[in-house]
Design a protein around this nucleic acid. Structure first.
Length: 335
DNA sequence: AATGACTGCAACCGCGTAGTT
DNA sequence: TAACTACGCGGTTGCAGTCAT
């Protein structure tokens, strides 16, 4: 509807606030509260529009504003929340006491976004960029080859290779937006950033997936690995509706519980999300992973060789997936 | 020391929407 | 129901400080 005319009025001061103006605004609000922002400037003796006063108060003068650098915890919280909420700065700020949406937005744009990009993550989706990711199997293979050959027996190498490839395949499987795999026919939208979080949690919980360069865990430290990555839980409540107009607590089809204050949020596993999003999707079977046999390792080796010929895109035929997944202990950790 | 590039942050702008008349 | 007002939000801009050459 109609826009506020207040900022269009001529003769009102713009630009940086002076200490005198700050003092007038603070004094007035401390005494009367802000009330109507439109009426405030005249009452407070300020030659500013109400909008400017509100911004100055909420972003700078408010007494509960926390100043100084963002802590590691705050940084992690912003990352976690942004992966779920996107650029909902005010919603994110709601979970960081003393921080303003403007401050968080600036911090994101000047620090976190750049770091994510440098590390090969898409800052909007929080997923590995496909161009980088496409060469990941090769990079990992190169990085690990020496150590693999020198320090492990054939069986150990095979087991590790299986784990690495299954993780990669599973990750790529999740990342295929139009995946035609048999588990996900009707609910591809159920795969969200939460899946990535869960996935990275899963990856971090299995050992030795060092990438040699970086991970989401510690953006200030460029030489960290998934193996040291803590669970990406969201330490906040979700009482604030994601959409003002509804009480819908879903994002891209993924359901988020409405939690009470102080209750931590642990995203559902991809399998749980799948089951929740599609009633026709069977629950993951609860089975004990079969022991690794020479033939299963050979099968896996075939899949691996297939993957290199694909250049790292879709690494295995969809029909192969469930079997591969079910054979991997990682699947059972996730489920 | 000068200057141009880069960075970080405060403030502005314009849009969407709830509330009011 | 339409028109209008006020507010909040997210994107963008402009400027001061810092760094590199």
């Amino acid at each position: 509807m109609g826009r506020s005319p207040c900022c269009d009025e001529s003769g009102l001061k713009k630009g940086p606030w002076t200490p005198d103006e700050d003092q007038k605004l603070v004094k007035y609000i401390q005494k009367h509260g802000h009330g109507s922002w439109r009426a405030l400037p005249k009452l407070a003796g300020l030659n500013r529009c109400g909008k400017s006063c509100r911004l100055r108060w909420t972003n700078y003068l408010r007494p509960d504003i926390k100043r100084g650098k963002f802590s590691q915890e705050e940084e992690q919280t912003i990352l976690n929340l942004h992966s779920i909420l996107g650029n909902k700065w005010s919603a994110i700020a709601g979970h960081l006491p003393g921080r303003t949406d403007n401050e968080i937005k600036n911090f994101w744009n000047t620090h976190l976004k750049k770091k994510l990009i440098q590390m090969g993550f898409d800052p909007m989706t929080h997923r590995p960029r496909t161009d980088v990711f496409s060469s990941l199997p090769h990079l990992i293979a190169l990085a690990n080859l020496k150590e693999l050959m020198e320090n492990h027996t054939w069986e150990e190498q095979a087991v590790r290779l299986q784990a690495e490839m299954t993780k990669l395949q599973y990750l790529q499987y999740l990342l295929q937006p139009s995946s035609s795999n048999s588990l996900n026919n009707s609910s591809s939208s159920a795969f969200t950033d939460i899946d990535s979080i869960n996935l990275f949690n899963s990856l971090s919980s299995s050992t030795q997936w060092d990438m040699g360069s970086a991970s989401l865990q510690n953006l200030s430290n460029p030489s960290v690995s998934f193996s040291h990555m803590p669970d990406l839980q969201v330490p906040c409540s979700y009482q604030t509706p994601l959409n003002k107009n509804s009480t819908d607590n879903t994002v891209h089809g993924a359901e988020f519980p409405v939690l009470s204050q102080g209750e931590s949020f642990s995203p559902k596993s991809p399998w749980q999300q799948l089951a929740a999003a599609s009633s026709s999707t069977p629950s993951p079977p609860s089975m004990v992973p079969p022991p690794l046999t020479e033939s299963s390792i050979n099968n896996l080796a075939d899949a691996c060789s297939t993957s290199s010929s694909y250049g790292g895109s879709v690494v295995a035929a969809p029909s192969v997936w469930p079997e591969l997944l079910l054979e991997d202990p990682l699947f059972h950790e996730i489920a």
